[in-house]
Computed example of a mutant assay.
Amino acid sequence: MTRIDIAKVQPAAYDAMFGLEKYLETSDLEPILIELVKIRASQINGCAYCIQMHTKAALGKGEAVERIFALSAWKESPMFSDQERAVLALTEEMTHISRQGVTDRVYAQVQEHFNEEQIGQIIMLVTTINAWNRIALAIQIQ
């Protein structure tokens, strides 16, 4: 079954999504951390297209192949910093928001490593990649 071309039928909405991407490029967040979040959310959501795109981007920014391989098991892997762990935990809770929301424990961990502006940027990052995943899956981008 052929699905719609969202960029063609909803160009203003699609442009707004790219506006969020441009905003994220100006954030204080490390480029590799941004890609790790995008990969992890995409893994959870089962978006192969986004996993492939953001894995390539992470590698292009200098991320190690081993860390990308370990990303789905970041809780057990010693390869991730406490700062990365805090963001990945927030990514997982936001991506699975219907389970329990974002817990105080995870939010407090993020507060240990980031200021309010950065936390806002992280929340927008996770929100944006989850939206992209849903778009890609709904229209079966390949």
Score class of each variant (00 low, 15 high):
97 I>P: 02
73 A>V: 01
117 E>P: 00
79 M>F: 11
22 K>T: 14
99 R>K: 14
124 M>F: 13
5 D>T: 11
31 P>C: 03
96 H>N: 09
138 A>W: 08
25 E>T: 14
12 A>C: 12
33 L>N: 02
34 I>F: 09
129 I>H: 02
100 Q>M: 15
87 V>C: 03
127 T>S: 14
13 A>C: 06
26 T>R: 15
29 L>F: 01
76 E>V: 04
13 A>N: 08
135 I>S: 02
72 S>W: 01
103 T>Y: 06
107 Y>N: 01
91 T>L: 00
1 M>Q: 09
64 A>H: 10
137 L>T: 10
20 L>N: 09
50 C>H: 03
132 W>P: 03
81 S>T: 15
34 I>V: 15
52 Q>G: 12
138 A>P: 09
18 F>Y: 15
135 I>E: 03
123 I>Q: 00
117 E>W: 09
16 A>D: 08
5 D>W: 06
15 D>P: 08
53 M>L: 13
91 T>M: 02
7 A>P: 00
135 I>C: 09
87 V>P: 01
67 R>G: 06
14 Y>T: 12
65 V>E: 11
37 V>M: 08
88 L>P: 00
84 E>T: 05
40 R>W: 01
100 Q>F: 11
136 A>Q: 13
18 F>S: 10
116 E>A: 11
48 A>P: 05
107 Y>I: 05
37 V>A: 13
15 D>V: 14
101 G>N: 04
15 D>Y: 14
73 A>M: 07
51 I>T: 09
110 V>S: 05
60 G>Y: 09
77 S>Q: 09
42 S>L: 00
7 A>S: 14
7 A>R: 05
36 L>K: 13
112 E>W: 07
1 M>R: 13
140 Q>V: 13
78 P>A: 10
37 V>K: 04
83 Q>S: 06
87 V>K: 02
86 A>K: 02
106 V>D: 04
39 I>M: 05
139 I>F: 11
47 C>G: 01
75 K>V: 04
18 F>I: 11
1 M>P: 06
94 M>Q: 00
127 T>G: 10
77 S>D: 15
13 A>P: 01
136 A>M: 14
102 V>L: 06
43 Q>R: 07
21 E>T: 12
35 E>C: 05
81 S>D: 11
67 R>M: 05
110 V>K: 03
136 A>Y: 04
65 V>M: 11
41 A>F: 02
8 K>F: 04
13 A>M: 11
75 K>R: 15
82 D>H: 12
40 R>F: 03
63 E>V: 00
4 I>Y: 06
50 C>A: 14
6 I>E: 07
85 R>A: 04
96 H>C: 07
121 Q>W: 07
1 M>T: 07
112 E>P: 04
107 Y>K: 03
89 A>R: 08
136 A>I: 09
68 I>G: 10
77 S>N: 13
3 R>F: 10
78 P>N: 02
49 Y>P: 00
39 I>F: 00
4 I>P: 02
22 K>G: 07
41 A>S: 15
11 P>R: 10
57 A>M: 08
28 D>C: 10
